[in-house]
């Protein structure tokens, strides 16, 4: 039991430790900046949780995030209203996810390979469309998405909570969620049970893409630019959040709460290192070590239950 709570305890210890170590940590400005920073990865990681549970993986989310943000801001730069721009970004993400899903299920190629490919293709698309140049002419009110405040809390926190609750319900209370767990843990058994394995898998990737598109719009709103190079390396952070939170790359395991905790652990680690003046180089190594530790403890817990 204690080991099951380990990620959560780690988060608490980090929180308390940082409160003691730095006077700047427990301030409203700092905490809301942590939330805003983490929200982007967090929302992507929610989609990744679903994908990983269904036995897949998506390496292209960093690129999708860039394409979504880019197309969304371009729409706004063309004079379309903000909500249309956001819609464009989200739909672009959905379309990319759908493409990933269709490619993996129809060509029957390992998703690692497929999304490694689309990671390059989508990034290339973003660079071609924008000619490598960021979009700047964005209506100022768009910054509310990433930087605004609602009822005293960062607006993105509300968005994140909404997504998290929706994903939790999807996983625990819908057929698609149950099918995802089944497909991830034994695709043959799922197929024999009459589950539309290919269709469901495609939807799973599409949902992942949709959330990534949304994350792309938040990122664009925070930076107030549409960057074709945004989100580089985010895929690994999203995967790390899922895995720290107890998700298994073998499929069939993972949870929304775990992923949220995983993402916040990483968020606090990088925020704490900034506050304590630890160099970004060391930060990278620390995060890497935490990933390995987290997975090790999780494996130990599982082994104890089996042996």
């Amino acid at each position: 039991m204690i080991q099951r709570l380990l990620p959560f305890l780690t988060l608490i210890v980090l929180f308390v430790g940082l409160t003691i170590a730095s006077p700047f940590f427990l301030t409203q400005t700092n905490l809301s900046s942590v939330v805003r920073q983490t929200a982007v990865i967090n929302i992507m990681a929610l989609g990744m949780t679903l994908i990983i549970i269904a036995g897949g993986i998506d390496l292209s989310v960093g690129s999708i995030l860039a394409l979504g943000g880019l197309l969304g801001t371009m729409a706004m730069a063309q004079g379309y209203p903000i909500w249309v721009g956001i819609g464009v970004g989200v739909l672009a993400g959905l379309a990319c996810g759908l493409a990933n899903g269709v490619l993996t299920t129809q060509l029957n190629i390992n998703p690692f390979i497929v999304t490694l490919g689309t990671m390059g293709i989508v990034r290339g698309l973003a660079l071609i469309i924008s000619n490598g140049l960021p979009v700047h002419q964005i209506p100022p009110r768009f910054s509310f998405l990433g930087e605004g405040t609602l009822f005293g809390l960062p607006f993105v926190l509300w968005v994140l909570l909404l997504c998290a609750v929706a994903m939790h319900i999807l996983l625990e209370n819908t057929r698609l969620g149950r099918h995802s767990f089944a497909i991830g843990s034994n695709p043959d058994a799922a197929y024999y049970a009459g589950i539309p394995v290919k269709f469901d898998t495609t939807i799973v990737y599409a949902i992942g893409g949709l959330l990534t598109g949304l994350a792309g719009m938040i990122e664009a709103s925070r930076l107030m630019t549409g960057q074709p190079t945004a989100g580089n390396g985010y895929e690994l952070q999203a995967i790390a959040a899922v895995v720290i939170g107890g998700g298994s790359l073998r499929g069939g395991e993972g949870s929304v709460v775990g992923t949220l905790i995983g993402a916040f652990i990483m968020g606090l680690l990088s925020n704490g290192s900034d506050l304590l003046g630890i160099s970004p180089y060391v930060q990278q190594a620390i995060i890497g070590a935490v990933i390995i530790l987290a997975v090790t403890f999780d494996e130990l817990r599982k082994r104890k239950m089996t042996a």
Binding site: N186, A189, A193
Partner: peptide, 25 residues
């Protein structure tokens, strides 16, 4: 069998259409 999932979920897996409305269980 999905060996890493609970027995209960395995048993209901093929019957989910019987116990769900609009995809919600």
């Amino acid at each position: 069998l999905a060996t890493l999932r609970p027995v209960g979920e395995n048993i209901s897996l093929a019957s989910l259409p019987l116990v769900s409305t609009f995809g919600f269980l």
